[in-house]
C-alpha cells in the first residue's frame, strides 16, 4: 500500500513547502506524452519508456502526475542491483518503474507504457539458459539426467 509513498519520498517535502496549489508546471505535457504512447500501444503494440528523472519538474509536479495516474492493482519489487519498485498505475498498461540503489537512493524513475514492464520479464538470454538450469536442478535432486528417464 505504501509503495507509492516510497516511490515519491523526495517530492513529499517539496509539496509541504509549496505555499499554495499551483496551476502551472510540467506535469500536463507529460500526461499528453503518456496519452500518445498509450495510443501507440493500443494500435500497434509499440512500447514506450519515459524517463521522468530527466523532466524539468518544479516542486510538486511529480506528485501531481502520480496522483493523476493513480494506483493500479499490481506492485512488484525486483531485487537486482538494489531494489526496483514497480507499480501499475490506475491506467492499465502504464507502469511506474522506480530504480533504486542498494542504499535506497533513486537511480532513475521511468514510466513504461507496455503490457508488462521489461524488467519483470525474464531476459531473453536468461530464458535461453532456463532449461539447462532446470535440468541441472533436477539432476541435483534425483541424481539422474531427466532426458534419460
Amino acid at each position: 500500500m505504501s509503495d507509492l509513498d516510497r516511490i515519491i519520498p523526495e517530492t513529499r517535502a517539496a509539496k509541504n513547502c509549496a505555499r499554495s496549489p499551483r496551476d502551472f508546471g510540467n506535469a500536463l505535457p507529460v500526461l499528453n506524452e503518456i496519452r500518445h504512447a498509450l495510443e501507440r500501444l493500443v494500435e500497434t503494440g509499440e512500447e514506450t519508456r519515459i524517463d521522468l528523472s530527466g523532466m524539468p519538474f518544479g516542486p510538486g509536479d511529480l506528485d501531481r502526475l502520480t496522483a493523476w495516474l493513480g494506483k493500479g492493482e499490481v506492485t512488484a519489487t525486483v531485487e537486482a542491483l538494489g531494489p526496483t519498485q514497480i507499480q501499475e498505475t490506475a491506467i492499465p498498461g502504464v507502469w511506474l518503474v522506480d530504480y533504486r540503489s542498494g542504499e535506497g537512493q533513486r537511480l532513475t524513475l521511468h514510466l513504461e507504457i507496455a503490457p508488462v514492464p521489461e524488467l519483470l520479464r525474464p531476459q531473453p538470454r536468461d530464458l535461453a539458459e532456463a532449461l539447462t538450469l532446470l535440468d541441472a536442478r533436477l539432476e541435483e535432486d534425483q541424481g539422474t539426467p531427466p532426458e534419460s528417464s
Binding site: 537486482a80 542491483l81 524488467l119
Partner: peptide
Amino acid sequence: LSRRGFLKL
C-alpha cells in the same frame, strides 16, 4: 550482476 541488474544499470 544479473542480467536484470545489468538492464537496470
